[in-house]
Simulated scan of single mutants.
Amino acid sequence: MSSASMHSEQSSVTVLGLGPMGRALAGAFLDAGLRTTVWNRTPGRDRELVGRGAVGARSAEEAVAASGLTVVCVVNYDAADAILRRDAVAGALKGRTVVNLTADTPNRARDAADWAAGHGIRYLDGAIMTPTTTIGTPAAVFLHCGPAELYREHRPVLDALGGTHTHLGEEIGRAAAYDIALLDIFWTAMAGYAHALAVARAEGVTARELAPFAKGIGAILPPLFEETAAEADDGSFSGEGNPLTSAVSSMAHIVHTSEAHGIDAGVMRAAEGMARRAIGRGHGADGFIRIAEVLGRG
């Protein structure tokens, strides 16, 4: 390949999937001056990007053939497979690189990597940990995994997406594992907040009145994450200051108050049940994070 061809390959990228996140990714590449080819299963979503200078491909195979690097961002791996595993697309991708930023499970990432290897396609997996509004800004956070040399090769193009890029290692399911664990924190926290708002409203407290104090509770969590991470890794699970026996008492108060107002307390009942299981196994004096070990036993 000539040096001019290599430069062209390194300054171009294809984006498959033009939902809100896919459009944000393509927009960041365009803003960085990269030749950006785009394609989406639903026609018309490329209109604004084409107006900004993107090349709208007529088919997925045409799109992937346009660049040495294809970034995929669709709703899940079923959607990604439906695009990539067509014979024409797989053939066009041979010898090229796919960076799959689609969210799904670690096992789906491993399966995709195995498929790619079997078709001569170079493959990196990844996860986007911040909203669309952060893409192209310093606030964006991306996680990547797969062959380190391949990641280094394409890092200059990926840097156009802004923010922080972290290579988590070569095990291809690792980015998805982080994604699942971190989204677990996010959605259980948001479920807890939604439940808290329902309880507060039932007691005559508005969401605006509660919000400043809710932020205070949120601020307590980061140092607790650090402290309890060490405990979880070394198995100490200190309950000094707030043992599980005390925790279940406060959980019970939440359940009783909720149900007195006819509010579903299923989430808190589940948390209380996990804590009581740990107490039943002799861990009443331990801290709350002991339940991580209990859950892991099944």
Results as ranks from 00 to 15, higher is better:
M6L: 13
H7W: 03
Q10H: 09
V13I: 14
G17H: 12
L18I: 09
P20Q: 15
P20M: 14
A24W: 05
A24C: 09
A24S: 14
G27H: 02
T37I: 03
V38H: 04
W39E: 01
N40W: 15
T42Y: 14
T42Q: 14
R45K: 15
R52S: 05
R52A: 13
G53R: 11
A54C: 12
V55S: 06
R58W: 04
E61Y: 06
L69P: 03
T70P: 10
T70I: 08
V72S: 07
V74G: 03
V74A: 06
A79V: 04
A80G: 05
I83P: 00
L84M: 12
R85L: 12
D87K: 08
G91I: 09
R96G: 11
V98I: 15
N100G: 02
A103M: 07
D104W: 06
T105M: 13
A112L: 15
W115F: 14
A117D: 14
A117V: 10
L124V: 03
D125Q: 07
G126K: 02
A127L: 05
T132Q: 13
T134A: 14
A139N: 10
A139L: 11
A139P: 00
A140Y: 07
V141C: 10
F142V: 02
P147E: 14
E149H: 03
R152K: 09
E153V: 01
P156C: 13
V157M: 08
V157A: 13
L158R: 01
G163W: 07
L168N: 06
E170M: 09
G173N: 05
A175P: 01
A177Y: 04
A177C: 10
Y178E: 01
L183C: 15
A189E: 00
G192Y: 02
Y193P: 01
H195N: 05
V199C: 14
R201H: 11
V205D: 03
A207E: 11
R208G: 10
R208V: 09
P212Q: 13
L224Y: 00
E226T: 09
T228E: 10
A229G: 03
A229I: 02
A230N: 03
D233M: 13
D234L: 00
D234Q: 02
S236N: 04
G239F: 00
G241A: 05
N242D: 12
N242V: 03
L244S: 01
T245A: 11
S249Y: 11
S250E: 09
V255A: 01
H256S: 13
I263E: 03
G266I: 06
G266P: 04
M268R: 00
A271E: 00
G273A: 05
G273E: 05
R281C: 05
G282I: 07
G284Q: 11
A285K: 05
D286F: 04
G287A: 09
R290L: 08
R290I: 08
A292P: 07
